[in-house]
Simulated assay, not measured.
Amino acid sequence: MSDTTDEIFDEQPHETGDTESTGLYEHLNIKVDKNQEPLRIDKYLHIFRQNSTRNKISQTCRAGNVVVNGTPVKQNYRVKPGDEISVLLTTPPRENLIIPQDLPISIVYEDDDLLVVDKAAGMVVHPGHGNYDGTLVNALAYHFEKNGQKSDLDRVGLVHRIDKDTSGLLVIAKNEYALSYLAKQFFDRKTKRLYWAFVWGNIADDEGTIRGNIGRHLKNRMQMAVFPDGSLGKHAVTHYKVLERFRYVTWVECKLETGRTHQIRAHFKYIGHTLFNDERYEGNQILKGVNLPKYKQFIKNVFEVLPRHALHAHTLGFTHPVTKEEMYFESPMPQDMQAAVEKWRNYTAD
């Protein structure tokens, strides 16, 4: 949600700022007041966002995330009346105490600036209401502590998140500069991400695009909904390609042009192809197929081998914040989804 506010500072005339927050980073648009005296931009932003340290703002500038009148600037730039400032700030850590816990996690890459994790389904990414421990962040805190590494962020540098029951790849930053640099790539949609999903029904086209604003469902607050007229929610676009058809279920590859909460889940429900076994979106019912006992038993068996919604973050690509190397990772299909594929292949072969 964005809002427009007039903020008054002890030493400054008022400025107008638009703020958009995703929970992991905050996008600010600031128009500098006509009476503003010349002031270093790191000090100016520190006053504007007092919950951000000067070091955090300095690293944000280094990462190219502070833009004045369309041009990235360094921390010693002096703001002038009428300047238009755009800032992408990572949000402050939450107040939850992060307790290091020795939990199994799969780290597929690690260096001094970041690591990439292949998250198992069922693991919550970050502590929150109802999940105060046992999360990926608790496991990472233990990993850093065990290896004598220092993470200067309580939330261990989360750049993006995936749902508890979604498996697959996540990148985690180890320092403020890496966090700012990676956050900018996600915000600018320059990362390379593909998801695998199993959805109910036989999708008509081999490739397609789903467009429609996504926002909180008006009646069921646990779900996100699509508002195609744009009256509510945020702009969202999902591209898909069919990989394999199983008569009553389709395996699709999804490329996100935007990164909204539950985007794949909400978009496919909107077009009538809810994710297989997605309990929150009623995909844990038999939505397609024949009304025969043998078929019902078959679906029950598939639900048992795949006891969660069928979504996997298959690939992740980004530019390394320090080396500027193009990094690319692939996660193989997890065992539960593979078991479901084998059952469907056997079923459709009969």
Rank of each mutant, 00 (worst) to 15 (best):
D6Y: 06
E7Y: 10
I8H: 09
F9E: 01
E11R: 12
T16E: 11
L24R: 13
L28M: 09
N29V: 12
V32F: 01
V32M: 06
D33H: 15
D42I: 08
Y44Q: 00
H46Q: 13
R49T: 11
N51Y: 07
S52P: 00
S52A: 14
T60Q: 09
G64N: 10
N65P: 06
V73G: 04
K80R: 15
P81K: 01
E84M: 07
I85P: 02
I85W: 03
L88H: 03
L88V: 14
T91M: 12
P92H: 09
L97C: 05
L97H: 10
I98H: 03
Q101A: 11
D102H: 13
P104D: 14
D112W: 05
D112R: 13
L114E: 02
V116I: 10
V117N: 03
K119H: 09
K119T: 07
A121Y: 04
M123V: 14
V125W: 02
H126E: 09
H129P: 06
T135K: 06
T135S: 10
L136C: 07
L140K: 04
A141H: 07
E145F: 05
K146N: 08
S151H: 08
V159A: 06
H160Q: 11
I162V: 12
D163S: 11
D165E: 15
T166C: 08
G168C: 05
L169R: 00
L170M: 15
L170N: 02
A173D: 06
N175A: 11
Y177M: 08
S180R: 02
L182N: 03
F186D: 04
F187S: 15
D188F: 03
D188L: 11
R189L: 03
K190I: 04
T191Q: 06
R193F: 00
W196C: 01
W200S: 06
I203A: 02
A204C: 07
D205H: 12
D205G: 01
D206Q: 13
I210F: 06
N213W: 12
N213H: 15
N213L: 07
F227C: 04
L232M: 13
L232E: 15
K241T: 13
W251M: 14
V252Y: 02
V252D: 02
E257I: 09
R265S: 08
K269Y: 05
Y270K: 01
G272W: 06
F276A: 04
E279Y: 08
Y281E: 10
K300P: 00
V302I: 14
E304N: 11
P307V: 05
H309I: 05
A310R: 01
L311Y: 04
H312M: 10
H314I: 01
T315G: 00
H320P: 03
V322K: 14
M333V: 15
W344F: 15
W344N: 04
N346Q: 14
D350Y: 09
